[in-house]
């Protein structure tokens, strides 16, 4: 029998190279990704009265709570913006990131029952999560836009500007960082469950190191540098600047470049690690 290597459509060996990523498989399974998106999105509000409205209620209640606690009681600066608008701008962006990170970091553990039965590119699951969260984001973003328009017409100090067209880029970087970190964590949690607990409050703590409840401009010196080391900072700040016009003094393209580079690195690391783990995770999970 001819043993021509090229003839085989698939060769499985115990040790694959680090960069054999099979990303083309992901493309082949794009329909599955979209179906996962639909599943994730639809199944959340099945059998609820308000349905997708919940996606809006959550940020608005959070923004009101923040307005009371951080705005009125703690008297934190809102860079001259109406409290509701300021917090909502932070929450809308932050929610997208934290949801991406939280949900993708559970990929292996939550889907163990499916992964243990059938092979399909495992990366479809976190990628689908990123996309379905995008729909959630759109709901919350339209809420933000409504509030923004209201203030735009009732006040004179709201100045939306051309930077708002950076939104797709901001989302891309955010999704990339969320996905990258998420899959790194999900790969590690197959062995070390501890990380699950860590991530739950880690994300919450990280929010306080991101200008969500305060503007970057209110921080000075070392504190500011520390904040800027957080790649999410520039994304939230740019978003806020583009739609409301505050914080322009602190904008530098370099900050966005930093976030972008950060994304590229975690994404590459994440995909490699994920790829490594997905082969044998059934034995360790």
């Amino acid at each position: 029998m001819e043993n021509n290597y090229e003839e085989w459509t698939l060769v499985v060996k115990p040790n694959t190279k680090w960069f054999e990523l099979h990303l083309s498989d992901l493309w082949r399974y794009r329909d599955l990704i979209m179906l996962f998106v639909k599943r994730d999105f639809v199944s959340v509000y099945k059998q609820t009265i308000l349905g997708p409205l919940w996606y809006i209620i959550q940020p608005i209640l959070t923004a009101i709570t923040y307005s009371i606690i951080f705005g009125s009681m703690a008297q934190l600066s809102t860079a001259g913006l109406p409290k509701l608008l300021f917090y909502l701008s932070g929450i809308t962006m932050w929610n997208y990131f934290s949801e991406c990170l939280n949900k993708t970091s559970n990929t292996f553990i939550q889907n163990a029952h499916i992964f243990g039965k059938v092979y399909f590119p495992r990366l479809t699951v976190p990628v689908a999560i990123i996309i379905s969260n995008l729909f959630t984001f759109l709901f919350q973003f339209s809420l933000f836009l409504t509030i923004l328009l209201f203030y735009y017409f009732t006040r004179t100090d709201i100045h939306p500007n051309k930077f708002m067209f950076l939104l797709p880029v901001l989302l891309l970087i955010m999704a990339g960082i969320g996905l990258g970190l998420g899959i790194i964590i999900s790969s590690l949690t197959t062995k070390y469950r501890d990380l699950r607990f860590l991530i739950a409050f880690g994300v919450q703590l990280l929010m306080f190191a991101t200008p969500v409840i305060y503007p970057l401009s209110s921080m000075l010196g070392k504190k500011k540098l520390l904040l800027l080391a957080n790649p999410i900072t520039s994304l939230v700040e740019t978003f806020r600047m583009g739609f409301t016009g505050v914080g322009g003094d602190d904008f530098k393209w370099g900050y966005l470049g930093y976030s972008f580079s950060f994304m590229v690195i975690v994404l590459i690391l994440g995909v490699i690690l994920f790829n490594k783990v997905e082969k044998s995770f059934m034995d360790t999970v």
Binding site: V11, V12, K13, P14, K117, M282
Partner: peptide, 10 residues
């Protein structure tokens, strides 16, 4: 679903 420890399959 999982990979072999040794050997190949085609």
């Amino acid at each position: 679903v999982t990979t072999p420890t040794e050997g190949t399959f085609k």
